[in-house]
Amino acid sequence: MREEVNLQQLTLLLTERAHIPHQEAEAFLKKFFAAISETVSKEDRLEITDFGTFTLTRLAAEDIAPAAKERNNALYCKLRFSPAEALKNAVNKPFSYFEKVLLNEGVSFEGVTVVEEKEKKTAEEILIKIDRDKAFALDSKVKQKTKKKPIARWIPVLGTAAVVAALIFFFMSEQKKAPELKNNPKKVTAKATTIGKPETDSTTTNKSSQTPSQLPKEPEKIQLPADKTLRLIALEKFGNREFWVYIYYKNKKKIKNPNIVPVGIELIIPDKSEYDIDASNPQSVAKAKALGDMELKKFQ
């Protein structure tokens, strides 16, 4: 059973340790906790040395996706407490002798959860909902904070328009080049063979003066036969089954679960240099194995 300490017990301890009267200690603690709540509601940040920092983030309702239904009725505040280093160290004293250990490839522990950097949680946040009717002051603060948003919203639209314009310009210039290429096949470049239609334009490939190394490398594509798996393809293409994970990474958009890959699916075979694939290098194999194990754990 865990000990629960209340204000009375804290007061007794403070009286004893600070050598002050009981009433003074009680008044101090009451004011201390009340001052925290009062300050946090007025200021966005309160830092108390050796204790921690309270941070308040004001949000408009539209910033919180699940609460979209209440878009026009509520505002939200996120309250977070981040303990100070001194407090963290004090509570973690039993583990102070442990350090993080770099794991060699192939080493794994059963029952130990794997946390990726992007999934790492920060301090716990408390979401507080405030009715808009009661929060005119806050509403105006949020509006001031989000004043720049309309411009920000246009950035992706403008970006997309710029990309589309660039593509149109590129294809129009390619179309202009096409008649020239037909009239003078000797001038055909590597670009024309890849961007045009190679199967219909046989003269271009035959008469090209470019060496194969100068041509842009087309990724190899195969259709998964009924009797093959990612491991067998990895063995065939890269010389080791463990490199299946890189085929999976390259086709992650198409493969929902690496254990169930539909027959006939078109797979892009990655270039060996892209993932540092080397079957003769035990480290490369071990790295692929560790990554493969990690991916498979996600589907267990």
Partner: peptide, 22 residues
């Protein structure tokens, strides 16, 4: 827990930790 660094893909065995929550 095992912590995987996003860029290097290095894996670290992290010791247990006690977190203070409010």
């Amino acid at each position: 827990h095992i912590f995987v660094e996003q860029e290097s893909l290095q894996r670290f065995l992290m010791p247990p930790e006690i977190e203070v929550v409010f």
